[in-house]
Nucleic acid binder design. Structure first.
Lengths: 236, 236
DNA sequence: TTGTGACTCCATCATTTGATTGAATACTAC
DNA sequence: GTAGTATTCAATCAAATGATGGAGTCACAA
């Protein structure tokens, strides 16, 4: 049986999918409390009751958005890992940064939603599994930081978190940072990639030289795409 | 003539100061739209009308909070810069990371508010100057990345931004990351410092060796503590 | 054609939330 | 003490917001 999310993804023209897409963007921009169902409905061009008809209440919609974003991010990580599989550590970092930044800059609401989830509370406790632990473990292993993705050391996790945080920060902060730097979008993206490489590559490459013989083992896919997203409440 | 903010700071026992302190924390946790004036008033133990009496409307209070945080952050940056003044680049980074992280972990609402401001919009356009450009320029110069704090290159700014973002991310994300890493607070803080040093020091030290003779010139104070915070509306 | 189900919107509600008023109380200067 | 100011709160308002009921519309199968 299909979850509502899958159905919505299947047909991007469906009302349900259109609502989800707009909700992603607006929740990402304004956060949960900063977003009203009326804002979303108006943007889609429908009445709020139509929105509720398709997605239930505001919480349900938000959860669907979060899970949708999770799925996309997981898929992309998997894709990137396949591309860099087998390369040297430096090359893996180089290519991963390029690919991930291109992807995130194309879908900035992903970074927005991830960071808002990290940093901000909601009054009514919404509990959506953001899959950070899984992702982090997989990335850590793919980077050669941990042998076992299921049991990464806190140290490896921290490194992965700082990589992901740095990436998301520059994407989400574009509206704030770019005017300040007086760069156009293209040059901003270039500068971000350059800065991330400047920061990350020396640290990881140096460490590899210091502590290792040849043990960065980049095997196995990055994200396992386990357990499907919990279906959002189906309207009936 | 004193601004309300200064008055509030002067006497931390005053109602005005107590409200401001609570507002800082709650706005930091829940963001602007996630915070209600009633939440703040309740936490202080007063009626909302008392809150409005002292600080005007919600926007005014939020602006006061933002400026208060700015002042504190500027003061601390200045302090840290004085401490590390004259040391080697590696030592400057080491000590700065230690000091700044201790400070931010003691005042996590600062990181929360800074990041929320970067990443999230508010429905009604609140425009508070967050002084990021100034700070960044001063930090860049203090780090030896730019000769002139008033005209840092975009490249230097980007580096400073990534440093600040990484710091703030780990502070604001504590509630999310720490349970995931299964670390107690003390060890989390230690791990954050270690990770930041792992990432930042190789990059900057390597670069210095590569491009420079001896030109990291750490002179002049870090933050200039210019123009006072614009006074929040005085209730009368 | 009629019936059914999916979909959409209009009208409307209840609650939350920002904000104000005016009466009480505390404090200060004289 | 008293006048006058500063502070506080209970009561209340208006707008925003989440949510629902029910009527109307449409496509399509029987």
């Amino acid at each position: 049986m299909k979850s509502p999310l899958e159905k919505a993804r299947k047909n991007p023209e469906s009302m349900k999918a259109r609502i989800l897409a707009v909700a992603r963007r607006i929740f990402g921009e304004y956060g949960f409390h900063g977003t009203t169902t009326r804002m979303i409905a108006k943007e889609v061009g429908i009445d709020i009751s139509t929105l509720h008809y398709h997605w239930g209440d505001k919480n349900d919609l938000y959860e669907a958005v979060v899970m949708d974003v999770n799925n996309d991010l997981g898929r992309e990580l998997l894709k990137v890992e396949k591309i860099v599989h087998g390369s040297s550590l430096e090359e893996r970092l180089n290519v991963s940064i390029d690919k991930m930044m291109d992807y995130l800059f194309d879908h900035p609401e992903i970074s927005n939603l991830v960071l808002l989830r990290y940093f901000s509370k909601t009054r009514n406790e919404i509990d959506v599994d953001f899959k950070v632990p899984e992702f982090s473990g997989d990335i850590a292993r793919a980077m050669g930081l941990a042998k076992d993705a299921k049991n990464p050391s806190p140290r490896s996790m921290m490194k992965v978190l700082s990589i992901m945080n740095s990436m998301h920060s520059f994407v989400s902060g574009e509206n704030f940072f770019r005017p300040m730097l007086k760069l156009d979008r293209k040059n901003y993206i270039r500068a971000v990639k350059e800065t991330l490489k400047f920061l990350l590559i020396p640290a990881f490459v140096l460490q590899e030289g210091k502590t290792k013989k040849g043990g960065d083992s980049p095997e196995a896919p990055l994200a396992k795409e386990k357990k499907k997203a919990r279906p959002a409440k189906t309207a009936e």
